[in-house]
Write a protein that binds this DNA or RNA. Structure first.
Lengths: 126, 126
DNA sequence: GGCAATGTACGATTATATTCGTAAAATGAA
DNA sequence: TTCATTTTACGAATATAATCGTACATTGCC
């Protein structure tokens, strides 16, 4: 499995990955239905994208039956980590806390969110 | 000034914007020198990129003297906000606190960072 | 003036992402 | 079996980003 190689999914690929992460596994049709709710594009476009993602190793698939079944081959967490790190570097001059400030400051978080973060903060202080 | 239009700078454009944000204003040469430290590309490539950014309205320039002087025309804060929001939507299912957790959890922050965040958290709790 | 250095403009090329049309195979229902 | 539907494969077209070569103008120095 890819734990080290730096694959950067494009925006379209991320949309597909999000669906796969949510569903666990899905056919092209299922992914497409979900995307089509927001986006406007043809079925074969989604198909082609997923085929390309397969070639890149971003997804795996079970092609034992006619209708292939896809799964993400990169973890949501790793991808988040990778993209957050990149964003911290290029947009926040390497300062993680700056990113946190921005994320928290631009939108008033709920009490639950605040508590969650406080807990994390407490555990980090030790 | 562009406060509403959703301009999305590409990766290369972001690198240039970062330099401009840091320096306040800069010539193509200055930007290029800084980029060349990390990246490997020709002078005219940087020039062309900055010309395109000018056409897009991402930067402004003073061309009254032969050597043009560039400035960012989008604020660092607005750009950060925009990209963070997008990331929250597509990668964190809309949960800001999830992003914060990821940002803090994947790397041990310094005491100073923790204090900064604690302060922000305190002020938000009110 | 002549010339090297530096700058901009701009077209051309390359790379990559995205979209879609069409063909062919598999499936299932009448 | 026959035919409509669903699916994959794949090539081609389109869009956008990134890189560079070359031409030409300006500047400053000899």
């Amino acid at each position: 499995m890819n734990t080290t190689k730096a694959l950067k999914p494009t925006d379209s690929e991320l949309e597909i990955l999000r669906v796969l992460w949510d569903k666990g596994e899905a056919t092209v049709r299922e992914v497409h239905e979900e995307l089509a709710a927001t986006k406007d594009c043809g079925y074969t476009t989604t198909l082609k994208l997923m085929q390309i993602m397969f070639e890149k190793g971003l997804v795996i698939r079970d092609d034992s039956s006619r209708t292939h079944i896809y799964q993400a081959n990169v973890s949501r967490e790793k991808t988040q980590q990778q993209l957050v790190n990149k964003m911290v570097d290029t947009l926040f001059s390497g300062s993680r806390s700056q990113l946190v400030m921005q994320a928290l400051g631009s939108h008033t978080p709920s009490k639950e969110e605040l508590n969650e973060i406080q807990q994390l903060l407490d555990s980090l202080k030790k």
